[in-house]
Amino acid sequence: MSKNLEIEFKNMVTEEEFQLLLKTFQITKKNFFSQTNHYFDTKNYSLKKLGAALRIRELSEKYELTLKKPAVNGLWEINDTISQSEADLLMKNSIFPSGEVKDELLQMHINLNEFILFGSLRTERAEIEYENGLLVFDHSFYKGIEDFEIEYETSNRDEGEKKFYKLLDKLNIKIQYADNKISRLYKVTQGKKDVSP
C-alpha cells in the first residue's frame, strides 16, 4: 500500500505533435509499455460527486487498485497491489479486496456493493525523467477512439507548471486542456460532461 500526493500537468496533443515529442526526446517503440485502466463508480456516481475516482490498473505483471481523492494541491493517490484473482472478483462480482483502498472507501461511507465497472481504457505509455520530474507520453485507446497526451508529474506545483509550459512553448505545441482519462472515457460511455478525476 502507498499513499502519495499527485501533482501533474497534462496537455492533449495531435498525432503530429506527439511524434515531434517522441523525436525530440528520442523515444522509440521499445520505450513504450502497455497498461489498461478499468474504472469503477456506483450507479449514482458517488465517487464522481466527491471529485474522487477508482480504478484497477492492469500491467503486464501486476494489478494496482487506486483511489484518487482531491487534495489542496493535487490529488491523494491511495494504492494497493492486488492479485489477478482479486482484480477479477472486483470487476465481475464487485467483491473488494482487503486493503487501504477498501478502508478509505468505507470511511467515505460508500456502499461497496454498489460499485460497477463502467469502462476500460488502454494506454501505450513511455516515461522519462525530465527537469526533476517525470515526463509521460500517452497514446490511449477507448470505445473506438484514439488520443494523445503529454503529462508532467512533479513534486512542486509552481516550478512544475513553469517547466511544463516552457517545454510546450519551445516546441510550438498548442496548449489544449486535457480531461483526465476517466473523464474522457466517461463522456464517451455515459454522454455526460461533469466528471471526477
Rank of each mutant, 00 (worst) to 15 (best):
M1V: 01
K3H: 04
K3T: 15
M12I: 14
E17F: 05
F18A: 14
Q19M: 06
K23R: 11
K23V: 01
Q26T: 14
K29T: 12
K30T: 15
F32T: 10
F33E: 15
S34L: 13
K43N: 11
N44L: 00
Y45S: 04
S46P: 01
L47P: 09
A52K: 03
L54A: 03
E58G: 08
S60F: 13
Y63W: 07
T66I: 11
T66A: 07
K69N: 12
A71C: 05
A71Q: 08
A71D: 11
N73P: 06
W76L: 05
W76N: 02
I78G: 04
N79I: 12
T81M: 08
E86Y: 04
A87Y: 14
P97K: 00
S98A: 14
G99I: 02
V101A: 01
V101F: 07
Q107R: 15
H109D: 09
I116P: 03
F118G: 00
F118I: 01
G119A: 01
S120N: 14
E127V: 14
I128R: 15
Y130T: 01
E131W: 04
E131Q: 15
N132V: 09
L135T: 02
L135E: 05
D138M: 09
K143V: 04
G144E: 07
E146C: 06
F148D: 04
E149A: 11
E151C: 05
Y152N: 09
Y152V: 12
S155W: 06
K162N: 11
K163F: 09
K163T: 14
F164L: 12
Y177H: 10
L185A: 11
L185S: 13
Y186W: 15
K187H: 10
T189A: 13
Q190M: 14
Q190W: 02
K193A: 10
D194P: 00
